[in-house]
Design a protein around this nucleic acid. Structure first.
Length: 464
RNA sequence: GGCGCGAUAGCAAAGCGGUUAUGCUCUGGAUUGCAAAUCCAGCUAGCCCGGUUCGACUCCGGGUCGCGCCUCCA
């Protein structure tokens, strides 16, 4: 079964062909660390987490690299506002980012390079670009990339270089030869944050770090480059220009971009200020609910962030978890034992088709229906272990069903009180005092507790 | 203006040139002391106008509307 991936470069789904058999080099643009991560970041993190988990499950040897941008104008400005060293700011937000990732069940990438740890690589690449005449030092000390020298500029996003020139904003006081040129190295005085380089003291521009770090971690030519929806232009276009000019070979073979998270129909972004941070959302919703929401649509589709969608995601996950109740002891099936399982085969086929998590999820629900029908019989356990295996590929089912279904927010009724009332109701039922039993049930329902009687006793869960 | 993406039932969201997507909601049935959960059955679809085809939600053309990028942003 072959893997197909939609590539921004070709604008269509392509059959994936690795550079080396069985191996995948994957570079994803990470986060600029000067603020808390928001749900848009979570989208990219979860998407590539699921993608890398799935690829590994299919025996691909994945080398997953996701960088951290820890030097940049915004970082410097924010640090100045806070009157603190920029390194204090970045290390703090890197820590927060790791906390958020852990909370969301994001597995760490194989490498997490930081721009400031690759200054030498960055300088070396800029030197090469200057030597090849693809870059020049301007009168203000900055080093710029000479866009006119790269004939294929615009090939990722179908931009016409001439029209970019016509539409480019004319910057006053610009030292650029051409308004399309972009900074590789920004001049820094002795008091400013900076590093010494043959072309003078300064700090790297935004785009060059990814070219340098991906080369250091994966080589000049690698398989897949990914990132968020706002990166194709100019960032990835510029990366291509830098890397292909400096290295003299193709850069990434496939380009993957996640869809935007929207809020009221508008893209959520730091610059618009309309974002919800991951940690704020996790105060109200279980991390797996957030994961479920993010994988319940295709990674390339825009997704709307709303309270209603989170509630719906919770309802869907409740159904999955409810099916697992009573089978806590059954382990997830090893994937090697599932090759004949029709549900798993469909699941894998969906994921091999450009990572169609929504269809894969539909397969899991088909499995749930089969499982619910089979409960009590001998056929149930294999279905449970298959379902658990698929859920784990999505980073779900990290909880015991009861603890997920009964997980409480701060102002919810305590589990002990629920249990006590259930005991009272059970006694009332035994006494045939159904009026009292129903009264207790209504009381609990008003507190968000739903009761489910079963031969093994009364189960409960929280709703809403 | 340029480039690109999308328009599916009450809501969310997929595949597919002819045969049930799926989840939530809703209706009926089974089950239950009554419920809930579960199972079974069912109701709500494919922006508009043309074309291709025996047949189009699915392909092609033209509209309309929405969104993203074209400046830092995942």
């Amino acid at each position: 079964m072959s893997l197909t991936i939609y590539s921004t470069l070709s604008g269509k789904k392509e059959v994936f062909s690795p550079r080396e058999p069985g191996k995948i080099g994957l570079y994803v643009c990470g986060i600029t660390v000067y603020d808390y991560c928001h749900i848009g970041h979570a989208r990219v993190l979860v998407a590539f987490d699921v993608i890398s988990r799935f690829l590994r499950s299919q025996q691909w040897q994945v080398h997953y690299v996701r960088n951290i941008t820890d030097i940049d104008d915004k970082i410097i400005n924010r640090a100045q506002e806070n009157s603190e060293p920029y390194t204090d700011l970045t290390s703090r937000y890197i820590e927060y980012m790791h906390e958020d990732e852990k909370a969301l069940g994001i597995l760490p990438p194989d490498a997490e390079p930081r721009a400031t740890a690759h200054i030498a690589d960055i300088i070396a690449m800029i030197e090469t670009l200057i030597a090849k005449d693809f870059a020049y030092q301007a009168s203000n000390g900055d080093v710029y990339y000479r866009v006119s020298r790269f004939a294929e500029y615009g090939k990722l996003t179908n931009k016409d270089p001439e029209q970019l020139l016509a539409g480019a904003r004319v910057e006053v006081d610009s030292a650029k030869e051409d308004p399309r040129d972009f900074a590789l190295w920004k001049f820094a005085s002795e008091q400013d944050v900076g590093w010494d380089a043959p072309f003078g003291r300064g700090r790297p521009g935004w785009h060059i770090e990814c070219s340098a770090m991906s080369k250091a971690c994966l080589g000049a030519h690698f398989d897949i480059h990914g990132g968020g929806p706002d990166l194709p232009f100019p960032h990835h276009e510029n990366e291509i220009a830098q890397s292909e000019a400096a290295n003299g070979c193709q850069y990434a073979n496939y380009w993957m971009h996640a869809g935007a998270v929207r809020l009221d129909g508008e893209k959520m972004s730091k610059s618009l200020g309309n974002f919800f941070t991951i940690r704020d959302v996790l105060k109200q919703y279980h991390p797996e609910v957030v994961r479920y929401l993010l994988i319940s649509s295709h990674y390339r589709s825009p997704i709307n962030y709303s309270e209603e969608n989170l509630v719906e995601a919770k309802a869907g996950l409740d159904r999955l978890y409810s099916a697992l109740r009573g089978y806590e002891a059954v382990p997830a099936a090893p994937l090697s034992e599932l090759s004949d399982n029709e549900f798993y085969q469909k699941f894998v086929a969906a994921m091999n088709d450009d990572f169609n998590t929504r269809v894969a999820l539909a397969v899991m629900f088909d499995l749930v229906r089969a499982l619910n029908s089979a409960k009590g019989g001998a056929d149930a356990e294999p279905l449970v272990s298959a379902l658990k295996a698929m859920g784990e590929l999505f980073g779900l089912f990290g909880c015991a069903p009861d603890s997920f279904l009964q997980s409480a927010s701060a102002d919810d009724i305590a589990a002990d009180d629920v249990e006590a009332l259930i005991a009272e109701r059970t006694q009332a039922k035994r006494d045939k005092n159904f009026a009292r039993a129903d009264e207790v049930r209504d009381q609990l329902l008003a507190a968000g507790i739903v009761l489910e009687d079963s031969p093994e006793g009364t189960k409960w869960r929280r709703e809403g």
